[in-house]
């Protein structure tokens, strides 16, 4: 029950936050895609990825001395989720090794990774449009403040 409440809260927070991501025009079918992502040739990812196209909440934390961050929340677009990590779209670049909080309001994510509120570490970030960066993160640990809920 608490899980469900938490998901609904995350969903409503994500919807209230202004999502500043501008997906490229050629990605018009982005939110319609479902199912498993097919791995391309030479894809070295360890786990299959499930397309989970929905809003999520990213909460900035200041973790690197070289990258100033203020604690703020942003709505991001989830792209896919696997047992080892998550990819999402964000409007600005994030830096490798930064750690942040990611709240995913989606059942599928919980099925795959056990829970939806995580501390994540940025692994890579590539621009795909003027205000659109694809960010790959590793799931580090469940967010301590919600552990056990």
């Amino acid at each position: 029950m608490l899980d469900r409440d938490h998901e609904q809260l995350a969903q409503s927070v994500a919807e209230r936050l202004d999502c500043q991501v501008e997906l490229p025009e050629s990605w018009s079918g982005f939110f319609d895609q479902t199912g498993w992502s097919s791995s391309g040739e030479g894809d070295r990812r360890r786990f299959p990825r499930l397309k989970s196209r929905t809003l999520a909440v990213l909460e900035y934390r200041h973790t690197l001395s070289s990258v100033p961050r203020e604690s703020r929340r942003y709505a991001v677009y989830l792209k896919d989720v696997s047992r080892g990590g998550v990819a999402f779209m964000h409007h600005e670049q994030l830096f490798p090794a930064e750690r942040m909080r990611l709240i995913m309001p989606c059942d599928k994510a919980r099925e795959l990774v056990g829970q939806t509120d995580w501390i994540v570490e940025i692994i890579r970030c590539v621009r795909v449009g003027a205000r659109c960066f694809e960010v790959g993160v590793r799931l580090v640990e469940p967010e301590p403040s919600t552990c056990g809920k």
Binding site: L64, S65, S66, V67, F95, P96, A97, E98, R124
Partner: peptide, 23 residues
């Protein structure tokens, strides 16, 4: 560049500008 930045990320004695040169 990503590996280099990540490996140095926690080094506070290295300035932000030096980190960005690596990245």
């Amino acid at each position: 560049p990503t590996i280099g930045f990540r490996d140095l990320a926690s080094r506070q004695e290295i300035s932000s500008g030096s980190h960005m040169m690596v990245y």
